[in-house]
């Protein structure tokens, strides 16, 4: 037997793409747990159904594209997309809504562009935005959190039933506007009064939302610790969101956009910061670029949340910045060893 003829290096590190994806899946557990704890089994149902459909769509696309199916399903990237979409959708969304979402994400946003690594937009967020625009009613129906209403939380059987359209009318009884919605609709009350008036609000932000966000924050810290991504993009996004909300807090007047803490722990802030903004495929590549990318997302999130039409804005902001990523890359190439910073910039323009 002859010896292999391969280019160096011959050693390889422990990291693999599948492992990265598995770590990401693992890191969603605290957040999903919080969501389930406060909103019932709806989110789990979403994630489950999204995973099944996403894998099916992925396999279908690979089959059509004549690619090895097992090899690519093994990279877990479809599952990550499914998890993120499932978490982002309102709990116990109807099965067809989820299916359209995963189909759009996998077939249009990912495989049509050439599969993993080639997609210019984050598939989960693109699908979310598509659904939000197409089905605004379903997409804005959030369940009421535990403790804000008298009834029981959604159990697993109910979640399954609602998901597949049986007795969906009953779900209206337990829906409630999200805290971000409430704040957006407010134009007469001081923030403090609003807080007392509405049942949705908890200690720092909305009931349940604050804990879901803390859960995703924990997951993100775990991923940082495992060096799955660098701190630059998420931290700069959170920082810029904090700065924006502090600037326009306005002392909690009726025109206030909400406190920094409220914004950090509301809606999809932490999910976005640690699971969406850090999506490497669609973000900027250099550390400097990621700082800019994250900061601009934070600014956009605040702008759309407070002055835009939609209550939450992470998906829109991320998509907008996906457009800008190549542009940012072009201007943020790091200084290479042995080059002066000036040369490097001059060489590019």
């Amino acid at each position: 037997m002859g010896f292999l003829k391969v280019s160096s290096p011959h050693a390889h590190g422990p990291m693999s793409t599948a492992r990265v994806m598995r770590l990401v899946l693992l890191a969603t557990i605290p957040g999903v747990f919080s969501l389930t704890f406060f909103f019932g089994f709806g989110t789990l149902m979403n994630v489950l159904w999204a995973s099944i459909t996403a894998l099916a769509f992925e396999a279908l696309a690979l089959k059509l594209r004549k690619r090895p199916i097992g090899f690519y399903l093994n990279d877990y990237s479809a599952l990550v997309t499914a998890f993120l979409l499932g978490i982002a959708l309102p709990p116990a969304s109807p099965f067809w809504l989820i299916m359209i979402g995963t189909g759009f994400a996998i077939l249009i946003c990912k495989q049509l562009y050439g599969g993993m690594g080639y997609n210019p937009f984050n598939p989960a967020m693109a699908a979310y935005v598509m659904l939000l625009i197409s089905f605004p009613v379903q997409m804005t129906t959030w369940l009421a959190p535990k403790g804000s209403f008298a009834g029981d939380l959604l159990g697993p059987i109910d979640a399954l039933r609602y998901c597949f359209g049986f007795g969906r009318e009953a779900i209206d009884a337990i829906t409630m506007a999200t805290p971000l919605d409430v704040l957006k609709q407010n134009n007469s009350l001081l923030v403090k009064d609003l807080w007392e008036e509405s049942a949705q609000f908890g200690q720092f932000a909305g009931i349940g939302w604050e804990w879901a966000n803390i859960g995703f924050l924990l997951g993100g810290i775990y991923l940082l610790y495992r060096r799955v991504f660098t701190w630059h993009a998420p931290i700069s996004m959170l920082a810029s969101l904090t700065v924006m909300s502090a600037l326009f807090y306005d002392g909690g007047s009726s025109a206030s956009g909400g406190s920094p803490l409220f914004h950090l722990l509301s809606g999809a802030t932490m999910l976005g910061a640690f699971f969406i903004v850090t999506d490497p495929v669609t973000s900027a590549v250099s550390n400097r670029g990621r700082l800019i990318y994250g900061a601009l997302i934070g600014v956009l999130v605040y702008i759309i949340r407070v002055w835009g039409n939609y209550p939450d804005a992470v998906a829109f902001s991320v998509l907008l910045m996906n457009f800008a990523a190549p542009f940012i890359d072009h201007y943020t190439q790091p200084r290479t060893y042995g080059h002066k910073l000036k040369d490097q910039q001059g060489g590019k323009s």
Binding site: M116, P280, V285, P334
Partner: peptide, 28 residues
């Protein structure tokens, strides 16, 4: 030192850029 497994798609994770001793952007 097992034989190199088949390469998967680049996900631009940037781990290469983190490892590069001369601050290049290997993924680009």
């Amino acid at each position: 030192l097992p034989p190199p497994p088949p390469a998967q798609a680049c996900i631009r994770c940037g781990m290469c850029a983190e490892a590069c001793p001369v601050s290049l952007l290997p993924q680009q």
